[in-house]
């Protein structure tokens, strides 16, 4: 069995977001970039499957991103991927999520992957489109927002718990399939220093647009949204601190929630 893990590099979740002077991107100076937290669950899940099953031949990591994204690949290789594909080209920076999915599909279509693991969403643009779109483009089933994943008794399909409002859907899905990963799956093991050193020697295939046959047609057929004009989030009006003894403050709170906020 061959597993593909698609990962993205994103600003660390503690980053203070400042909008750049052109208003089209954030100010990236000094921003610490990390593996998208949901993609950490994906690589860890892949490694755990290999540890429990003898038929996992390989785990390949794939990233679409600038030169710097190689650091994220190195982390994922240190955690346990065997090899990686790095898609890097200025032409890729202009793609929206659906087009990125089309690019990845064009690259991996003939790869014979039995299982594709992605994150539930990236924590920078929060779009959550890529996994299901990639599955559609590869014409394979997917289960989204998965918190638990096991092989079914037949060994040819997976049983996944998928988070929905107030419940878990328990879904059986045949391979090949794509899973988008959510917290609940195991936390990523720490990439140790020796493993980070070893990761440097693992093969990374670099591809540009010219190396992807049918790139232009594949990405022209779908998507095409353009992101522009970033703004700080809507200001929240300054809050009121309710003074006095707790019982007075609570009475005032209930009055305000009722009369001013009309929330209860």
């Amino acid at each position: 069995m061959k597993i593909l893990v698609v990962v993205k590099q994103v600003p660390d979740s503690t980053t203070v977001i400042r909008i750049g002077s052109d208003g089209k991107d954030i100010d990236r100076a000094g921003v610490k970039m990390v593996v998208n937290p949901f993609d950490e669950f994906a690589i860890e899940q892949a490694v755990r499957l290999r540890e429990t099953r003898s038929d996992v031949e390989s785990i390949t990591a794939l990233i679409v991103g600038p030169a710097q994204a190689a650091e994220a690949l190195r982390t994922v290789l240190a955690v346990g991927a065997n090899d990686a594909i790095h898609l890097e080209d200025q032409a890729f920076d202009q793609l929206d999520d659906l087009q990125t999915a089309a690019l990845i599909a064009a690259v991996v279509k003939a790869g014979g992957y039995d299982l594709v693991l992605a994150g539930k969403q990236e924590i920078d643009l929060d779009s959550g489109q890529l996994g299901p779109a990639l599955a559609e483009l590869l014409d394979i089933p997917h289960v989204g927002v998965v918190t638990k994943l096991e092989f079914a008794d037949d060994g040819k399909s997976l049983v996944a718990n998928r988070r929905i409002e107030g419940a878990d859907e328990v879904v059986q899905v045949s391979l090949p399939a794509l899973i988008t990963c959510e917290k609940g799956l195991g936390e990523m093991r720490y990439p140790s220093l020796p493993n980070l050193m070893k990761a440097k020697k693992k093969p990374v295939r670099k591809l540009t647009a010219a190396d992807v046959p049918g790139f232009a047609e594949a990405t022209a057929g779908v998507g095409g949204s353009t992101m522009h004009t970033l703004e700080p989030p809507p200001e929240r009006p300054p809050g009121k601190i309710l003074d006095g003894e707790p019982d007075e403050a609570v009475r005032e709170l209930v009055r305000l929630l009722r009369e001013e906020a009309k929330a209860i």
Binding site: D97, P132, E136
Partner: peptide, 21 residues
């Protein structure tokens, strides 16, 4: 959960563009 899961697939099928959330 359903809308987010379904919209990318339908967008690909209908050759649409998509914005989520």
């Amino acid at each position: 959960f359903m809308g987010r899961d379904l919209s990318p697939r339908v967008a690909v099928r209908t050759k649409a563009a998509l914005a989520t959330d």
